[in-house]
């Protein structure tokens, strides 16, 4: 157990943990911290993960092992052998995610990316989210547009259409959240070392499910810290 890990390094480990048990599937981290997390997972407990170079190559520690242009990525999404780590401009208590726009879609106050692959990703395979700045503007009562499908929406589709839906975790700069509750409401799984539970609650617009005792997010091991600091090449 190392005690001198930075918050970012703790987040990297929390993102890595999301991939535990995934086996031989494609990890698609969309942002830098989850990208380091996926690489750390692969270096340690998830060696079979498939990573890409972010362009069109399947790449393992600098060695090209396959071709992964967008058309093949789309195949893998619908095939289901993928775990995506997306960002979120907004998230609600059931994990509905918005990355399309803020305001009324017809004439938004802020046009963002568009729904991108979020609808298909969330209905076809495992999804996690990374929120670098946990705040009430992200964790909202109700998202302006559902890009990524949350648990209530998936449940409403019935067991058939929703059978591949899974939002595993939401990792933020303050905490790790999951949906391991009877009705899949967002739960505070752990707070990062040094973060009081109240700080997370105050930065969330909706009521989180909070267990009687909230554990600390695990710190990186010495070996993990060495790997992270060596750049995970």
């Amino acid at each position: 157990m190392s005690t001198d890990a930075t918050r970012d390094e703790i987040c990297v480990v929390a993102c890595a943990e999301a991939f535990r048990g995934d086996g031989e599937i494609m990890a698609s981290p969309m942002l830098p911290v989850p990208a380091l997390g996926a690489r750390l997972a692969k270096k340690t407990f998830a060696p079979d993960l498939v990573l890409t170079d972010g362009v069109a190559a399947m790449q393992e520690w600098g060695v090209v092992e396959g071709w992964m242009p967008y058309r093949k990525v789309f195949d893998v999404v619908w095939w289901g052998r993928r775990h995506v780590f997306m960002g979120a401009s907004q998230l609600d208590r059931f994990g509905n995610q918005n990355l399309s726009c803020i305001g009324d879609w017809r004439k938004p106050s802020s046009q963002l990316l568009g729904v991108r692959g979020a609808p298909g990703n969330t209905i076809c395979h495992t999804t996690s989210y990374w929120v670098p700045k946990h705040g009430k503007d992200v964790f909202v009562e109700s998202v302006d547009l559902v890009s990524g499908v949350g648990y209530d929406r998936a449940a409403a589709l019935g067991p058939l259409a929703g059978r591949f839906h899974e939002i595993r975790v939401v990792v933020t700069n303050l905490a790790v959240l999951d949906f391991d509750t009877p009705d899949h409401r967002m739960r505070l799984r752990s707070v990062h070392p040094g973060v009081p539970v109240d700080e997370v609650l105050a930065a969330t617009s909706f009521e989180l499910v909070v267990p009687p005792s909230v554990p600390e997010t695990r710190r990186p091991s010495t070996a993990e810290l060495e790997l992270i600091r060596a750049g995970l090449k």
Binding site: F74, V115, T122, I123, V146, S147, A154, L157
Partner: peptide
């Protein structure tokens, strides 16, 4: 959704009125 978009082009290429997909279900 990006995959729906591809599916729409493919349907047009194959001269089909539509192609089925799970992508889009449950989303806005």
């Amino acid at each position: 959704d990006e995959g729906m978009f591809q599916w729409g082009l493919r349907a047009a290429a194959y001269r089909l009125p539509f192609l089925p997909t799970r992508a889009g279900l449950g989303s806005d």
